[in-house]
Nucleic acid binder design. Structure first.
Lengths: 147, 147
DNA sequence: GAAAATAAATAGTTTACCCTAAATTTTCTT
DNA sequence: AAGAAAATTTAGGGTAAACTATTTATTTTC
């Protein structure tokens, strides 16, 4: 069974590959703020589940399956992040929350989130009036529109 | 340290008190879909943290602290649930997702969620136009407004 | 090419949850 | 009030994910 924590590892490995090319145990550990020995242990488990290819002291790579999952997490994450920022959540906090939410949201909720983003982006104006008014409302706690 | 799981227990105990008056080990177990023996174990830990009052085979109650936390979880949950439903997430799924989200959302995100609800509810119409249009957009994936 | 530095792997613990099975206590029935 | 049934507790295990400390490999540097 693929756990939330394994999803964290997949995401980190996926990102490291993207930015660094090579994936080092200690870099994974650093990103997850844990010790390298914990990473080795987890990689063994993830290997058994067919998520990574990994032999002692050899290059670490994601399997097809691992990469698919990582990619879909990344896509989910991007939607959630964008959504939170539309709502006016400050960037750093939005990043944190998005990482937590990506593990747990149902696909239905995710669909509504994606629709929301699309609804805003499909609008001819850069930011629709109602969203501007929402931002205003967040700041001053009062309406300035007829809705 | 108060874990997410303890928060689940707090919520369940709080609800059981509200609806049943009396809190039985087996009811907690049933609600959480686990065995009674696991509940006993957890109650011991929660007792050490000052979240519940509990002596073998005696009545279970929340402490002041436990109740505060439970109450604040309930409030959070209600906001999240309402929010998800405004977005058009079906009730049952919204309930599930809200229970997961209540453990992890930052207070900033929660504030934006509450503002969103308030923004909708402050509007003189029962449902603001932009929200109606969003619902339409979710269904047909096209705009019918000037935003 | 050997010593020093760095990286990775292993062994043994810990903590938070959960489980089953068995023992005990309480409650219900007759 | 005694025996049956239900609820609770205890004892003993298990798994996921971390940790520390030690050992083994690989790189770097001299």
């Amino acid at each position: 069974m693929i756990t939330k924590r394994m999803e964290d590892y997949l995401r980190v490995i996926y990102e490291l590959k993207y930015y660094n090319g090579d994936i080092k145990i200690k870099d994974i550990a650093f990103k997850l703020n844990i010790k390298p020995s914990s990473v080795v242990e987890m990689l063994d488990r993830m290997k058994d589940l067919g998520l990574v290819k990994y032999e002692k002291r050899k290059r670490i790579t994601l399997t097809k399956k691992g990469e698919e999952i990582a990619k879909s997490l990344k896509v989910k994450n991007e939607s959630i992040l964008k959504f939170l920022k539309l709502l006016g959540v400050p960037h750093n906090i939005a990043v944190e929350d998005a990482h937590k939410m990506e593990h747990i949201l149902s696909k239905e909720t995710l669909e509504r989130i994606k629709d929301f983003i699309l609804y805003v982006e499909t609008c001819p104006k850069p930011i629709p009036n109602w969203l501007k008014n929402f931002r205003y409302f967040c700041k001053y706690k009062k309406l300035r529109c007829k809705c």
